[in-house]
Design a protein around this nucleic acid. Structure first.
Length: 256
DNA sequence: GCTGCATGATGAA
DNA sequence: TCATCCTGCAGCA
């Protein structure tokens, strides 16, 4: 859509004023910081989008389906049409407001910038928190872009006990956790879906077509035997969300 | 046709 | 810490 004039609309109506304001304008660039998306329009206005839990984009080429009545925003370009429904955030902001939002987000492993610098920022952010590391990973001010799936999977893969206080994580564990999170996010970006298992842990016959249940180690698998050690996967509420982990691979205090 | 749930964020208490 | 918002879909009757 970028680099061309876009026709916008809001079938659902909740973004009607914004859509009317943007319609016919040129979309200059699209950028992401963690889960926040920034559409920058001609005229120095930014459309900020955050999908939240249920938000969804639908993409079409030359012949789009009609939008559902719940579609918050439609954007039609020359060769593509995008529908947005259910976002937590969809609003027009100024460049200054965009900057303020960025300023309170933690480092995003998928953004350009010195990997070392971002990792150190992550480490510094952890030392100021006493909350469990499993809660810290969901706080977008500490690290931007990790959600409920990646927090469980990254902690499993690094063998860290989710209950260890963020400020008590060892330097080694902090480095490992950052680099593993970054690696998983990049892999997911490339694949277009979340895959955290090593091929070594997958039945050879299924490697080319992993079922949904085979792409992850612990997320959503309470009670099932751990794919690495066989211990039943545990579930704990942490930061208001379900947290899955393996008491065998992530023993009490591991990572401290 | 219902109900409950989901890869979240926010603002009040 | 909790309720609330937002949508679509699977799993039920």
């Amino acid at each position: 859509l970028a680099g061309q004039a876009i026709a916008t609309g809001s079938p659902q109506g909740r973004f009607a004023a914004g859509a009317k304001r943007l319609s016919g304008r040129s979309l200059e660039t699209v950028d992401a910081h963690g889960k926040h998306l920034f559409y920058r329009w001609q005229g120095a206005e930014t459309l900020q989008v955050d999908l939240g839990l249920v938000g969804k984009f639908r993409l079409y080429g030359s012949d789009p389906q009609p939008p559902s009545v719940n579609t918050r925003l439609t954007m039609e370009g020359n060769e593509a049409t995008v529908y947005l429904a259910g976002p937590t955030v969809c609003e027009l902001i100024s460049p200054a407001e965009e900057e303020a939002i960025r300023a309170r987000l933690g480092p995003d492993p998928l953004r350009n910038g010195s990997a070392n610098g971002k990792r150190k920022q992550f480490a510094a952010n952890l030392t100021r928190r006493r909350i469990p590391i499993g809660a810290a990973l969901l706080d977008q001010r500490i690290i931007a872009g990790i959600g409920n799936v990646y927090r469980a999977e990254a902690l499993f893969r690094t063998g860290i006990d989710p209950h260890v206080p963020a400020n008590e994580l060892s330097a080694d564990a902090t480095v490992t956790l950052w680099s593993e999170s970054a690696r998983l996010l990049k892999q997911g970006e490339k694949a277009g879906r979340i895959i955290t298992v090593d091929l070594a842990d997958v039945d050879a016959r299924r490697r080319s077509d992993l079922g949904r249940d085979e792409r992850l180690y612990v997320y959503g698998r309470q009670g099932e035997p751990c794919r690495r050690c066989g211990t039943p996967v545990a579930i704990t509420e942490m930061a208001n969300r379900s947290m899955w982990w393996c008491p065998g691979c992530q023993p009490t205090g591991a990572g401290r």
